[in-house]
């Protein structure tokens, strides 16, 4: 067994508030950091701190490797003590990074229409998926649409990058921008027009949003993979803290680790209640 994994130390090279309470952090990492696959995440921790004690799982939003320079970007909203501490990090702050971790989205080599559905910070992994497709030969020509929703206009972040990558449709819960309502309803309106056998859907967002999506797609022969969010302690599968209920082959409930068997699951396998 090769001993090739360890925690890497990175330097924060920018940590910018892109919308109120929303931050985009770029971390410069050693060359040894593997290139993340779409849907994978990192465990990020402030070096030398016992408060917050645990790392926080964050999806990879963007990644670049140019010669010796490796930069991983994450997008986060301040929701608790951990992300609040992240928001105070300055240029040059030292962070510990474990990863990339978890099961990635299935990437299809060709001939698919790609639908991305993002709720809130779910835009982060969706952007990385879009970028991954656009960076490949087949994906550069694929038809791709992103549906992205947030509570209000002020919470819609990272739209610019997504708009460069693909056609982007917007919804807000309060109607301050785009479609007035849930992003899943916006998608539902378009659903009858899709060639579903040729379509692959990727989604990430709050659990109620994904549950609503599951209801729309029920009994439909369409491939849909979703990335789940869950509190984690280790991120590597040992603590069993991040489990979610999944249907096994016989339809029985089984707990699977979001960090290891996920965070990406087939939407049809998830048990919502």
């Amino acid at each position: 067994m090769p001993l090739n994994k360890r925690i890497l130390t990175g330097d924060v090279i920018s940590n910018r508030e892109v919308a109120e309470g929303h931050f985009l952090m770029a971390v410069k990492l050693p060359f040894a950091f593997e290139t993340p696959l779409p849907g994978q995440f990192i465990m990020l921790r402030i070096k030398g701190k016992s408060e917050p004690f645990l790392g926080r799982p964050l999806s990879v939003y963007a990644f670049q490797r140019r010669r010796e320079k490796v930069i991983c970007e994450v997008l986060y909203r301040v929701v608790g003590k951990g992300t609040q501490q992240f928001s105070l990090l300055k240029f040059g702050s030292t962070v510990e990074v474990l990863g990339p971790l978890g099961r990635s989205f299935t990437i299809f080599p060709s001939e698919k229409d790609v639908i991305l559905i993002a709720g809130g910070m779910g835009i982060a992994p969706m952007t990385y998926v879009a970028g991954h497709y656009r960076g490949s030969k087949a994906g550069s020509k694929m038809k791709m649409i992103c549906y992205t929703g947030a509570r209000s206009m002020d919470d819609l972040v990272a739209l610019e990058r997504m708009e460069v990558l693909c056609k982007t449709k917007v919804s807000t819960d309060d109607g301050s921008r785009g479609y007035h309502g849930m992003v899943t309803d916006l998608f539902k309106n378009d659903f009858p027009t899709l060639n579903i056998k040729k379509t692959v859907i990727y989604a990430c967002g709050p659990r109620p949003m994904l549950k609503a999506l599951a209801a729309i797609l029920e009994d439909q022969p369409v491939i849909c993979e979703v990335s789940l969010e869950e509190r984690m302690a280790c991120g590597v599968g040992v603590c069993l803290g991040c489990v979610t209920a999944i249907k096994d082959d016989r339809g029985n409930k089984q707990y699977k680790r979001v960090c290891k068997e996920g965070p990406v699951f087939n939407i049809k396998d998830i048990m919502w209640d």
Partner: peptide
């Protein structure tokens, strides 16, 4: 054993 339903963990001051 299937274990308990989630959520199963929460961070607390200097621990969990």
């Amino acid at each position: 054993r299937a274990g308990n339903p989630p959520p199963r963990i929460i961070e607390t001051a200097s621990g969990m």
